[in-house]
Nucleic acid binder design. Sequence first.
DNA 1: AGTCGCCTTGAAAAGCATTTCATAATTGCG
DNA 2: CGCAATTATGAAATGCTTTTCAAGGCGACT
Lengths: 346, 346
Amino acid sequence: MSGEATKGRSGRGRASARLTMQDIARLADVSTPTVSRVLNGSPLVTEETRERVLEVARAHGYAVNRNAQKLRHARTNTVAVMLDFGSHRHGAIGDPFVFELLAGVSEALSVRNQDLLLSPPGLDDVRAFRDFHRARGADGFIVLGQGTRDEMLRSLGKHDIPLVVWGAVSSDAGYCAVGSDNLGGGRLAGEHFVSNRRKRWLFVGDIRHEELRLRYEGLKLAAQGARNVAIDLLPIASMAFTVTAETVASYLAGVAPPDAVFAFSDTAAMAVIGAFRDRGLIAPRDYSLVGYNNIPPSAHFHPAITTIDQKTDVAGALLVEKLMEQIEGDRPASVVLPTRMVRRET
Amino acid sequence: MSGEATKGRSGRGRASARLTMQDIARLADVSTPTVSRVLNGSPLVTEETRERVLEVARAHGYAVNRNAQKLRHARTNTVAVMLDFGSHRHGAIGDPFVFELLAGVSEALSVRNQDLLLSPPGLDDVRAFRDFHRARGADGFIVLGQGTRDEMLRSLGKHDIPLVVWGAVSSDAGYCAVGSDNLGGGRLAGEHFVSNRRKRWLFVGDIRHEELRLRYEGLKLAAQGARNVAIDLLPIASMAFTVTAETVASYLAGVAPPDAVFAFSDTAAMAVIGAFRDRGLIAPRDYSLVGYNNIPPSAHFHPAITTIDQKTDVAGALLVEKLMEQIEGDRPASVVLPTRMVRRET
DNA sequence: AGTCGCCTTGAAAAGCATTTCATAATTGCG
DNA sequence: CGCAATTATGAAATGCTTTTCAAGGCGACT
């Protein structure tokens, strides 16, 4: 509609933005290929030429057009990262956890000089994914949080698209995954309960999420492994990924309260504490509680929350590394990162 | 080095990924321009041709190569988003707040069919910024959190690069900003203290951050506006953006404790509660406390934290809208979004 | 001294889609 | 029925960089 304001003039500051490799070549009195070689650090150039070209390029603030580069190469040097905003928007993830993961990935990619394209929301089926990939928007995908999309990811794995997923690691998934030891994490929580002589355990979380299912399995393992005690593993409060104090409260309304709760996240654990307090139940007096992710506020919470800590510091770099291997044509194995328990008041 | 694994074969699934517009043209028995026109919804094509082309394209799962598109057009339809990971990694931001902002931006961009490029960390000076822009990685920038980079952003504003910043809005900044009413938020906190008859106020936060400085100013305004009371505004604990229970504790060690604390974030508020509790001080009995951002756990905290709520739901869309206007050549005005106080136990 | 081979450089093609301009086909009108 | 005016389509140029291939210049070796 408008579009005249900028089009008309060409003598302003805009002109400099149009600088191309040819311009640099002309100014340095060489050909474009030579400029290209210099800028890419090729050894096939005289030191003297190199310096001249670099000098000109710097003086004019020239930067290579990445899009032309991407077009020329088969590789785009771009990685699409998919976040689970969907559930986050509803207050679900809440933890800065995914954010930390993203920071790690961003850093690792930048080191390797890869662009990070945040994939649009709504890439929910294989078709949308493939289109996105074919449009060469990206060489590969990093999916942060598999959510309930496991099936989609599995069929994606067959499509020859480089893909790494943060989440549950299962041997038969058919795609490369990096994740923490959810089973082990769950077991740690259970062992904590055992050592506190708790007998009525409750798991809070939606086990349709593969990661959470594994944590639950770990918890069960611990229950079965307990000697001389019969553990009562209460039916799961199979609530959505979203956990609020209200949902917990309404669950509590019907039953005799548990004496141990394993919440799928620290944020959920906080909600649990609130709901239990309303019923007059205080941790650790009346029940034990273990959260997950070890987010900073958990340490300051009252009571301070015992939680499972995942090694997120290396996660980003690892995800990127695995993806790069795939892009090179390899088929790297999945990785399970260790977890540990941070024992606090609950 | 390797590179043979994929290169050699061409009969596998790879071949289909190489599908180009020419292929579609040949298959549909038309020319490339026609395919292009069809795919871009140009009216210059017969209905019959259109259908044939679309049919072929769909059948073969063809998707336009965005990089070629970007190269051809002056606009890349890509927006770079800059996050303040730096401080986050040190446990600083912590709040899911920035994350929410990002989600909003992502959604708004996807609606407008714009790619979201997460800009690499370390874009700290004007030069790096400009290079990034010139490389045509992006048509414009959205900066989430101005941090202490205000000066850099100002000089950037003069460089003819479309830019919108989430953060403090000041009339002389020279760049377009969208942010919440930090001054008003600070005043709300102060008024809360006044109504609770608190007299020794402490602000926790690093006022080198423009946003935080404004909140502090708002607090001061409320102090000055109080009738019949002399408010004692304690020297700021001018700690880094990172606030831990330890920093608060060491600050407390030297002075008579305040009876009101305004923390720059809910996460910081939680740290404050922890440190005060260690000194035997309980809110709201011994002091009032107001946080910022209204993150979910604040409601479940014990005591439940009174906080300032920002309208993040519209923020993302607004940021994108302002940026688009700039890319079109306009110079949109900055916007201040309203804040409100969520009064809870503290 | 002559030939071979290496090193540096440039011309041209390729990578994929869009846009301009020209052409062929069709319609409308006198 | 012939000419002008549309309309649908294609050829060629364009955007910017990288890669291949060829050529020219130089020293080294026999």
